[in-house]
Computed example of a mutant assay.
Amino acid sequence: MDTFDVGQLVPGFRPPPQGAPAEIDPAALAAAQTRTRHWRSSFPGPLIPGTDRHRAETCRMFRETFNPYRPAVLDWPSLAPAERARIVALPIWDIAVQTEGKARLRMAAYARTLCEPDMRGALALNAWEEQRHKDVLSRMVAAYGIALAPEPTPALPADPEWAYLVTGYSECIDSFFAFGLFELARRSGLFPQALVDTFEPVMQEECRHILLFANWAGWHRARLPFWRRLRFEARVAAVWLYLAWERIGLAHTVGAERMAPEQEQDNNFTLHGAQSVASTEVGMADLMALCLEENARRFAGYDERLLRPTTVPRLASLLLRIARPLRGRR
């Protein structure tokens, strides 16, 4: 039994209120699905990173776009044998469940180090939602009889800021590609529409998570004095190098029946999933374009004054500009 409790790590955190399963109104859930995708601040001026207003509106966005779905009442549709076999065969489920387990712990560990109550509460809620993602995935694999490897118990990070940066930037990378791969799977029929609809709240919640992370990073770095900001930027650069090296290592292990413990990669399942989804007749340029399209669509409903993750979309746009002329010549 999973006994993880964000409140034990972040004193004062209270989970958001949720009705009992029998009390959930389908109309209210539909309204929540819309509300979680659309938010605009009532403040008329600019939201300047580092200001109290920017922090307050970022945290208000995260609270007000909360979706009250309950994993226990999600309706996992019956699948035809061929559909179930394709989903069971995807080599992502072990990594996906373990990723959420590490993310919830790292976010809660960093949240409890913050003195500012608004941001501490938002990051604690983020950790709670990661716990809910883990619950969703655990119930899904149980519903379809997907066998998981034993899950190691992640340790409390010795350096909470580093762990939070790794988790946050990992999610920025993985979500960008996951948005496109999820849509590609829907279009190809790999995931039946009923299953797509059931899993959709989790995908949009990941968009909210990286929106919160991007604005936390902007708020945090703008408040640092010059020498501490230099140190922070050096840490961010080190995180990107670490993640690049990690994903190069992961690319070499894709296709192995089971990675050895010393080869297990941290916080990523995008490349594993791509091996299965990208087997359709879709070129890399087309897949990149779809990821950019889906990334823009999922962020479109949020106040444009809030910061967005930009590094991966910019790199993808650059690669796309290079790839299209080359493809044209061929």
Rank of each mutant, 00 (worst) to 15 (best):
M61H: 15
G45S: 00
P91V: 08
R86G: 00
A85I: 01
F4L: 10
I92V: 15
A80G: 14
E57R: 04
Q33E: 14
T34D: 14
P68Y: 12
A72P: 02
G19L: 14
I95L: 11
A82R: 08
P21L: 11
E57L: 08
L9G: 05
F62Q: 06
Q33P: 00
L123H: 05
L74I: 15
R55Y: 01
E100Y: 05
R63N: 06
L114H: 09
N67W: 08
T3W: 04
A96P: 00
R35A: 15
G121H: 05
P77Q: 13
P21C: 06
S42W: 11
L114T: 09
Q8N: 04
Q98C: 01
Q33N: 12
G7C: 03
I92Q: 09
W93T: 03
P71M: 14
D52Y: 00
Y110A: 05
R37V: 00
Q98H: 12
R120T: 06
E100L: 08
D94H: 15
L47E: 08
P117V: 03
A82C: 00
V97F: 06
V6E: 01
G19D: 12
D118A: 15
P17M: 05
A20F: 09
M61I: 06
R86T: 07
T58V: 10
D52T: 07
D75T: 09
W76D: 04
S78D: 14
A28P: 01
